[in-house]
């Protein structure tokens, strides 16, 4: 499962569709699981009439969580040492998101082999919704 430093090089990529046609129900599930009940995410009347948005939108952390699935599928379970993101555009119900990791560097630190990844998640229109980076332990 785990990646091996000797088989990795800068520029290698891995991508996955992490959600196809995001449903409002999944946003509700995330609200319940995370405890973030901000009505912007689940309350259509509040989101449109009070906040002025076209509809509800997903928690940034749901996008980070879904992108995390791509990452752990790629680097293996329990291998991440760092994972950080910026939320650059909102994610709306109906969106299909593709998350992608690109190898920036393969290095050794204190005898441990590590891979640095650049992360980008885009919607069906190719618009970037999340950018970030991650570091994971890899086998020699």
């Amino acid at each position: 499962m785990a990646l091996s430093a000797k088989n990795l090089k800068a520029g290698d990529t891995h991508e996955e569709v992490v959600v196809d046609d995001l449903k409002r129900t999944q946003v509700v599930m995330y609200a319940g699981a995370s405890g973030d009940y901000n009505p912007l995410h689940t309350d259509e009347i509040f989101a449109t009439k009070v906040a002025g948005y076209p509809t509800v939108f997903a928690h940034g952390m749901l996008t980070m969580g879904m992108t995390g699935t791509m990452l752990t599928n790629y680097v293996g379970d329990g291998r991440l040492t760092k994972y950080g993101v910026r939320f650059v555009s909102q994610v709306w119900p109906g969106d299909t998101l593709t998350a992608r990791a690109e190898v920036e560097a393969v290095r050794e630190e204190n005898g441990q082999h590590l891979v640095d990844l650049k992360i980008s998640t885009v919607n069906q229109d190719g618009r970037e919704v999340l950018t970030g980076s991650a570091t994971a332990r890899v086998d020699p």
């Binding site: 973030d36 901000n38 009505p39 912007l40 009070v50 906040a51 928690h59 940034g60 952390m61 980070m64 991440l80 040492t81 760092k82 994972y83 950080g84 993101v85 910026r86 939320f87």
Partner: peptide, 21 residues
């Protein structure tokens, strides 16, 4: 606002999140 929750109501949004494990 709530700690780690990405800001409070209406106009509060979550901009970045970083974890070290």
């Amino acid at each position: 606002g709530g700690g780690g929750g990405g800001g409070g109501g209406g106009t509060g949004l979550h901009a970045e999140q970083h974890y070290e494990y």
